[in-house]
Design a protein around this nucleic acid. Structure first.
Length: 886
RNA sequence: GCCAGGAUGGUGAAAUGGCAGACACAGCGGACUUAAAAUCCGCUGCUCCGUAUAGAGCGUGCGGGUUCGAGUCCCGCUCCUGGCACCA
């Protein structure tokens, strides 16, 4: 690959061309946005990266190139384009590096940002670099803290003692989203549950609006659906169950009420037991009051449940566990049945009321539990048309009829109520409101909407994050750092290690922590938690609009002009986290009157992941690239041997795309691609691989293909005589086809087919040049204009070579001549019984009889018509003819 | 289990219900060259038939359906990828 550089350089010297134009763009601020200039705005946003030590990977330029092409195109169409870039730079890796080496995270971060900026510039992306933001810059996080204060003042931030995901290895608490199968997303360490004092944000208060407003967003349906599931709205009812302490059939005590949440209140007649979560407040109360006869057993279960990590809770759930609370019974309000009450960890304290009524006949989980504990299972819903099940006809049953099925019957759509008193004969849909009405009339229940969404755990026990601008005073009060004193900057620390006790590293900065009120002399301590990484990314798109403003986070006039973001492009991995949090903050700022729109991102596009090439064995085991030997161009390798065993025999491997990873050694570095083929080839290939949204495997051969196209373009434009002559009919047609296709495809972001249209054009153009010995100026220049958003460096160079002194970015996007596309004669396919049998040339716009006559006369067609009667003829003008024969 | 998305040549892919495989990669053959690289020209879905021009059949994961006509629309499956998962 390196060896042929010399030959390559002699005709298409991409390295010097790209350096030259990148330098010029930067010096001349070619892409500077005047946010106050008139003109229709286009705000195009890329998800800003975390500047890791590893540098860019080929996934980054994919989305960035797509938006860059669109932005360059929009500028040429006369739009005022805002296209910025910045750094989401708070986060754990820089802090862990600091723990290991003692280097301040700010130093590491600055170094990584410099590298990222350099790499991004080497791709030729048209950002306005005067708008760069960095979430770790005090001038930036001053406003992150300021927004937190607004949330606090609105009552949306509070401190709570909550069971959290504590990761001993990282010495910190993690958000639910950062825990995967009971292990930390970062580092894969075990996570346990432990109650701790934490900052929470009341995102639940916005659940309904976050759900409802999804409908008006132009986002991928899948992402919207994921957010809907995450918010998890369900409508049902709260039902009150009295709890009795019984003593030899006499009610000794009845004062407590357990309220359950259910979406199936229609099945209330079928409830055969109740379950409360081990953490339920009443359980502790009953134990204290001595109501529970088997208190020892119950306490032991509670203790074990609290020790379990989420992973264990999930894993052990294959077999249901629990303990009955002996001595008390719940009373079913609809029929007075006395029900046993259990505690079990299959009921979550954090959802609904932490208590359920169990209807094993019509709920899978209850059914499983009932089988383990041998509890009665009563049928109250039957398949429509089978109402005879149970004790007879609909409308008559009211008994406790055992359900005999082998699994729970949960079909809501076809279910009909049986054995349920006043509900008998109703469908499930009808029975629900009927039961709610009954519950409300008796005062023992009411309709209720419940969400899965929990409040946002907003604090981390880390150093490298935004400090909370909060002071806790010795008298127990709490106050915010005054807005004018922001930012509250991070103190210097000698030692960034987690304390391991859960107390954050900031607690070590004694001078910073301890404060004295200058007026009253009151003593206080600063909050030592820091904000999670999501904080800075929740509002960065607002700061880009007015990044240097030191009076407010952004000028309201400019926000009014530039919001919402017109297009947001990034990876699908942020589907629920970043995008939900950012929407939440935006809505709060909207309610407070700080932003003019209630949603931040109008249109969202997710680019698909780029996979690496990998090879697997017959059994499907992936073999790292450096363990593969090539024989006759075929890959051979062996599965890694188990410890202490004989090595496995080598076998021929099969190509299999897989995520790029260090362990597979198949990571493609954009720097290498740029060195060998240039940034324009990198850009073009990333777009040519396939649709932006699709997951696609990287192919080095594919890069060579687009490189060849650029080389041919360069040669055609620089080595063909360009004349000021009119285009031939053929030239005009091929040019118009290309411009039309490229314009339409860029608008819809189908970059792969736009590039293929330009490849078709260059094939045509080479033939034309050969034939005529020269090419018309308009023909060549229009092509260079169309290619310029895709391969900007080469096109600037060619444009200059064509005698223009101004950057091609300032030119108008070309139109096309519709009349050049009109043809005199068209060739259309002829089918007999829907099978293609021949083609005929007919005048464009020919009438049906003319076309049919010509079609029937075609010898290839005629032989299939011979001896047959034409029953029907289908003619689609300009498209095809089809004969139906008998 | 639930939700979403997908399945088209050797590969990446393209195709308003109207010529399936555009464009590119790989492969094969040729030109140029002492040679190689680069470049250029031609062929390239599968099967059959044939000296060849040509021709025939099959073909968009599987099974049905609608239609003059289905990769595309409808019904029923299979497999893959991602997300969620004891949320009552």
């Amino acid at each position: 690959m390196r060896g042929r550089t010399e030959t390559v350089m002699s005709d298409y010297n991409f390295t010097s061309i790209e350096k030259k134009w990148q330098k010029r763009w930067l010096e001349e601020k070619t892409f500077k946005t005047d946010v106050r200039a008139p003109g229709e705005k286009f705000y195009c946003l890329d998800m800003f990266p975390y500047p890791s030590g590893a540098g860019l990977h080929v996934g980054h330029p994919e989305g960035y190139t797509a938006t860059d092409i669109l932005c360059r195109y929009k500028r040429m169409k006369g739009f005022n384009v805002l296209h910025p870039m910045g750094w989401d730079a708070f986060g754990l890796p820089a802090e862990q590096y600091a723990v290991e080496t003692g280097t301040h995270p700010a130093v590491t971060t600055a170094k990584n940002i410099a590298r990222f900026r350099e790499q991004i510039r080497s791709i030729g992306l048209s950002y306005d670099w005067d708008r760069e933001v960095d979430t770790t810059d005090p001038k930036y996080y001053r406003w992150t803290q300021w927004i937190f204060e607004q949330l606090y003042k609105k009552g949306l931030a509070y401190v709570a003692e909550v069971p959290v995901n504590w990761c001993p290895a990282l010495g910190t608490v993690l958000a639910n989203e950062e825990v995967i199968d009971g292990r930390s997303e970062r580092g894969n360490h075990p996570v346990i549950r432990r109650p701790m004092r934490q900052w929470m944000l009341k995102i639940t208060e916005y659940a309904e609006r976050l759900l409802k407003d999804l409908d008006k967003l132009d986002w991928p349906e899948g992402i919207k659906e994921m957010q809907r599931n995450w918010i998890g709205k369900s409508t049902g009812a709260l039902v009150d169950f009295k709890v009795e302490k019984l003593k030899s059939c006499e009610v000794e005590k009845q004062e407590d009420t357990v309220t359950v949440f259910t979406t199936r209140c229609d099945t209330l007649f079928g409830a055969t037991y109740m379950v409360v979560s081990p953490e339920h407040k009443l359980v502790a109360k009953w134990l204290k009051e001595g109501l529970i006869e088997n208190a020892g057993e119950v306490s032991e279960y509670i203790r074990k449940a609290s020790m379990k990590s989420d992973l264990e809770r999930t894993e052990l759930n294959k077999e249901k566990t629990g303990v009955e609370l002996r001595g008390i019974k719940g009373v079913n309000p609809v029929n007075g049945d006395r029900l046993p009450v259990f505690i079990s960890d299959y009921v979550l304290a954090s959802y609904g009321t932490g208590a359920i009524m169990a209807v094993p006949a019509h709920d899978e989980r209850d059914f499983d539990f009932a089988k383990v504990f041998n509890l009665p299972v009563y049928q109250v819903v039957a398949q429509s048309g089978e109402q005879g099940t149970g004790n007879g006809e609909p409308g008559t049953g009211n008994g406790r009829v055992p359900y005999t099925g082998s699994k729970a019957f949960t079909d809501i759509a076809s279910g009909v109520m049986v054995n349920s008193g006043f509900l008998n004969g109703l469908s499930v849909e009808e029975a629900r409101p009927a039961m709610i009405k009954w519950l409300e009339e008796k005062g023992v229940g009411r309709a209720k909407t419940q969400y899965k969404l929990r409040d946002w755990l907003f604090s981390r026990q880390r150093y490298w994050g935004e400090p909370f601008p909060v002071i806790h005073w010795e008298d127990g009060t709490q106050s915010l750092v005054p807005e004018e004193d922001l930012p509250l900057t991070l103190p210097e620390l000698a030692d960034y290690k987690p304390t391991g006790t859960g107390e954050p590293p900031l607690a070590k900065a004694k001078e910073w922590v301890n404060v004295v009120d200058p007026k009253t002399g009151k003593k206080g301590v600063r909050e030592t938690n820091t904000m999670p990484q999501w904080a800075g990314s929740c509002w960065y798109y607002l700061r880009y609009i007015d990044p240097l403003n030191d009076k407010c986070f952004a000028d309201p006039e400019l926000l009014k002009k530039w919001l919402p973001v017109d297009l947001y492009v990034g990876g699908a991995e942020h589907a629920v986290l970043h995008l939900l949090y950012a929407r939440f903050w935006h809505k709060v700022l909207f309610d407070l009157g700080f932003v003019p729109t209630d949603e931040p991102f109008r249109k969202l596009v997710n680019q698909g992941m780029i996979l690496g090439t990998a090879y697997k064995t017959k059994r499907g085991v992936l073999v790292p690239m450096d363990k593969i030997t090539w024989r006759d161009g075929k890959p051979w390798g062996a599965e890694p041997a188990e410890e202490g065993k004989e090595p496995n025999p080598e076998e021929e491997l099969v190509e299999f795309p897989a995520k790029m990873s260090k362990s597979l050694k198949n990571v493609i570095n954009p720097d290498d691609v740029i060195r060998d083929w240039g940034a324009d080839s990198l850009r073009l290939y990333e777009m040519f691989m396939g649709p932006l949204q699709a997951v696609k495997p990287w192919s080095t051969k594919g890069v060579e293909g687009v490189f060849r196209f650029l080389k041919r373009t360069n040669r055609l434009v620089t080595e063909t005589a360009v004349e000021d002559r009119d285009m031939s009919r053929e030239e005009a047609a091929s040019l118009a086809r290309m411009v039309k296709k490229v314009s339409a495809d860029v608008e819809t972001m189908n970059f792969n087919t736009a590039i293929s249209a330009m490849m078709i054009f260059i094939n045509d153009a080479e033939a034309q040049a050969k034939k005529a010995g020269n090419l018309p100026r308009r023909y060549v220049e229009t092509f260079v204009l169309c290619l310029s958003p895709f391969a900007p460096h080469l096109c600037e160079e060619l444009w200059e070579g064509l005698g223009h002194s101004r950057s091609i970015q300032f030119e108008k996007w070309p139109g096309y001549d519709e009349s050049a596309l009109v043809e005199n004669e068209v060739e259309i396919p002829v089918q007999v019984m829907g099978k293609l049998r021949g083609r005929v040339k007919i005048p464009a716009g020919a009438a049906a009889d003319v076309a049919e006559k010509a079609a029937a006369a075609n010898p290839d067609v005629a032989k299939f018509l011979e001896g047959k009667t034409i029953v029907k003829t289908v003619f689609v003008p300009g498209r095809m003819v089809n004969f139906v024969v008998k």
